[in-house]
Design a binder for these strands. Structure first.
Lengths: 223, 223
DNA sequence: CAGATGTGAATGAACATTCACTCAGCCCGT
DNA sequence: ACGGGCTGAGTGAATGTTCATTCACATCTG
């Protein structure tokens, strides 16, 4: 369960920097054409280099795709890791999620990459593994943000928090992919998603009162 | 239940039947390899015919993909259309959504197709158009199901119902794509999604009391 | 026979990947 | 200061493969 070195302790530092540059310039092409639709020559051109040289940095297209996915996920992970470090994490989380919901209802090609990653993960088991591992970590950050803010007893059952964390992710991601399809936005949906997210966080905060029987408390009525 | 001919009044009836057969047998390949990853020869083989003959039924790969998307969407649409016809539509809707959430948390390659369609819609404007048109219709069915059950005044503002409808779709679809990635399920998430869906429907039903000022009422503690 | 239904090899384009090669910088003995 | 060899970054034209699409030809059916 070591965390520090993410992957590939192989390359020297400058090469890793170059890789990051390439990933940044290539992301748009993948968003436009999809993982399978983008050709290596397209990608090389976008990175401002020849096809041949491309293979100095990524040994195959699959490796490049994996790197892109990892970069995207770890970026998101970083944002949520920052949330945990905040003084009152749930408030920070609330703010971060609001930002993200608002940002994605405006133009930004993040949604296309998310969609591509989701589709790829459902198809290729190796990609699924990468995605799952990082998503677990993200969920852990969110869970931590919740339990830290609540000052939970250490023996508390984390399952409902984990589920809530994943529902938050589902909502934000789903909204990004659903709400905007090339120009169309839907303000009422955005508002509703925003409200749902707030409700979930409210529910979590409401759990602070009954730290004993922390089951999934209901927000509405029964049955 | 007769409906207007959906598209292409061109082909004779038997050909259209064959097209449906082909679409059914080909769906799995697309789920496995993705729209771009599946080759026409793969698809033809899956349909039990030669590559050449395939083009008798679909003039191009793009056309086949569009047909698949249309078939998938109209299947979902049909299920929701049935809901509207039920005596108390919201109850039927509740049941249908529960079914779907449960079904997708078990094995079923629907999620992969959904993911593929979502990704394709974010990339190709023409696909986005098809998807959007059908999704609007689905949302209309759900909205109708809600307003019918509530006996709303005809001049009521439908926007909040439409938003709720789309949030329901987002939740169910998102859960299908998120919760299951090649074998892994997450019962707590499924339960939470289920509860969220129920809450949304409860909120809608709660609107029945104040049919006058039907703004977006709060979902939390009403007391 | 005719028309619908089917075949599978052929075609040319596009693709991922490789390779022989260039070129600039840089170290080092003189 | 100088030349030469070494290295790492870069090129772009092959390479072999796969792909979507087409075509000339069967076979079945009424």
């Amino acid at each position: 369960m070591n965390v520090t070195t993410p992957v590939t302790p192989l390359h020297p530092a400058p090469v890793r920097d170059r890789e990051r540059e390439i990933i940044a310039s290539v992301r748009g092409i993948f968003a436009e054409k999809g993982f399978d639709g983008a050709s290596m020559q397209d990608l090389a051109r976008a990175a401002g280099m020849s096809a041949g040289n491309f293979y100095r940095y990524f040994p195959s297209k699959a490796a490049l795709i994996e790197a892109i996915i990892r970069a995207h996920l770890s970026e998101v992970e970083g944002q949520f890791a920052a949330v945990v470090a905040a003084p009152y994490p749930i408030a920070a989380l609330r703010h971060a999620l609001k930002q993200r919901i608002q940002a994605e209802s405006l133009g930004c090609d993040d949604a296309a990459i998310w969609a591509e990653i989701t589709a790829a993960a459902l198809r290729k088991p190796d990609i699924a593994q990468v995605v799952h591992r990082v998503e677990d970590e993200i969920a852990q950050y969110l869970t931590r943000a919740m339990t830290l803010s609540l000052g939970l007893p250490p023996d508390a059952d984390l399952t409902p928090f984990d589920a809530a964390a994943r529902l938050l992710v589902l909502l934000v991601k789903g909204h990004a992919m659903q709400g905007r399809t090339r120009g169309q936005v839907m303000p009422a949906l955005t508002a509703l998603v925003q409200r749902s997210v707030d409700d979930i966080l409210n529910d979590i905060e409401a759990m602070a009162s009954d730290t004993k029987g922390c089951r999934q408390v209901k927000s509405g009525e029964t049955t």
